[in-house]
Design a protein around this nucleic acid. Structure first.
Lengths: 299, 299
DNA sequence: GCCGTTCTGGAAATTATTTGCAGAACGCCT
DNA sequence: AGGCGTTCTGCAAATAATTTCCAGAACGGC
């Protein structure tokens, strides 16, 4: 790749390796920069010149020696590089430990962020793309899609239902296990049932998938446990990889992972039917817009 | 809190959320920047002015409106931010952020993972921890907590409602705007209303928060736009930093960011009441367990 | 010690950024 | 519709930052 890019990625390295061929005054500059890059970023060329007990001209020449067009460009690159390093550092000094009662609010936030991003990364990396494509194709072709989940998993199901509806598919969600069973039993071959369950052992969801299967529908399971009964029973199994924190107050990572899977599934579905999408999205947007006219209460 | 640092982390978010309060010419500038930040980084103020068919003065003023001392500082921050994002993209080995119709399923997954991860990281970094602590304390002390959200935001509200209920708090969620209004009006001083809305301009949600406020309840807003009317009206504002993909098929990042905020809030609440928690969680777990006895349909 | 080469900082020249200002555009009120 | 105040905009002047030029200083080789 073009040099410009490479330099920008590792300014400090460039500076270090340039030291041997620099003159005394320029070397002083290099050392100052390496010692505290973050400080230098905030300095104007004059400030840096003072800091190095030298002149602006020297700084400018230094920047050119290292391979930049001048101080302006160098400073920009330095800012990019330090920020990049900072980002990398941030990601790793997130203590991987579980959340405990002694944590500050800031710590809690970091840890949750870490766990949730981890869940997303691992889940998307571990997805069975073949199964996913099959599921997406089935949903695209279905006359109707039933979604089901209880407890925290109901949110994933609802979310997907909202999304599919938005692109003009007939998607249904029921929170009530009896209604869900009824609904599943009425599916027809070609229709799809998507069942969400973290453990994959929730009895209600299992029964729904069995009913859907019996009715001839394509069954899709979103679960954390590929060996669960739910997974065994489904045609397409989409596995989440969430390790729930010990502070298991609620399904945090698992729910995020499920939603991510839902998103990928949804986008795959939508991608296969571009004609339909464009229009449907716009129409639903307009509808909502129109529907929200009203009066403010404090007027 | 160190504003400088926060801004530097998410310049694009700042720009985006500043749009509402910008003038026409400044808005053009903002849009240009959002459209192709990498390009703008290489531009001098004159270049950017030309690109936006406006004057240098406008650019300079724009930078100040967004919260920087001037273009120099802004450009530096932009360089830092884009480089940071680039680093994150490298991690997911992908080249562009936005999803398009040509993407393979694997690519879609990477991109979604990237965007959602970014939303989580930026949101947790940008959280106002003071507001968060206040909200958590209020919820802990409330005799009742009302949660409200429509559309995609309803999921966040539901999620939080489930969690709070699990630790023994009286938490209510209503999807129906009329019921929500009724409910909000009946809150008492010391109670809490949590309102979730991405844009912060949804009329229904605005009215709910106004009603809750009038009833003397503590009001908490979860929104992406700190300058929105909703945010203005709330006692504690928790801001998400989600940049929705151009493939705006559904609120993916914004919803994830909201949930993350909800999680942090919940854990903060739970942390302050350990006695209550341990027991409550166990009892609710047992209850669910007992409630799920039944017969498998395929037996 | 002299000469040529390289290095350095002061200062001028250039370039970039910010600020002041006056006209234009807009909304508001009558 | 017309007048009035406010805000927005671009021009241009003022300022600030950076680059280039140049002359003197320092060093090394003869």
């Amino acid at each position: 790749m073009r040099k410009g890019r490479r330099v920008r990625d590792d300014v400090l390295g460039e500076v270090r390796s340039a030291i041997p061929r620099l003159s005394t005054a320029e070397r002083r500059v290099a050392e100052q920069i390496l010692e505290d890059p973050e400080r230098v970023v905030d300095l104007t060329i004059t400030g840096l010149a003072e800091l190095c007990s030298s002149s602006q001209a020297t700084i400018a020449r230094f920047c050119q020696s290292v391979g930049f067009s001048g101080y302006r460009e160098f400073r920009l690159a330095l800012a990019a590089a330090t920020s990049r390093e900072q980002a990398a550092r941030d990601r790793f000094d997130l203590t991987t430990g579980d959340i405990d009662f002694a944590d500050s609010v800031e710590n809690i936030a970091s840890k949750i962020a870490y766990q949730e991003t981890l869940a997303i990364e691992q889940t998307t990396k571990g997805l069975d793309f073949a199964a996913l494509s099959r599921a997406a194709a089935a949903i695209r072709g279905a006359a109707r899609v039933d979604l089901y989940g209880v407890g925290a998993s109901s949110l994933t199901a609802q979310d997907l239902q909202q999304k599919l509806t938005r692109v003009g598919l007939a998607a249904f969600f029921s929170a009530d296990p009896h209604l869900a069973l009824t609904s599943a039993a009425l599916l027809r071959p070609g229709d799809v049932a998507v069942v969400v369950s973290h453990t994959g052992e929730t009895l209600e969801t299992l029964n729904v998938i069995l009913a859907a299967r019996q009715a001839g529908a394509v069954t899709v399971a979103i679960t954390n446990y590929p060996a669960s009964e739910l997974a065994e029973a489904a045609d397409c199994v989409l596995v989440t990889h969430a390790r729930e924190s010990r502070y298991r107050s609620g399904a945090m990572s698992s729910r995020i992972a499920q939603l991510t899977v839902g998103d990928v599934l949804f986008v795959s579905v939508a991608q296969g039917m571009p004609e339909r999408m464009a229009g449907a999205l716009e129409r639903t947007y307009d509808a909502v817009k129109r529907g929200t006219r009203g009066r403010r209460l404090d007027a």
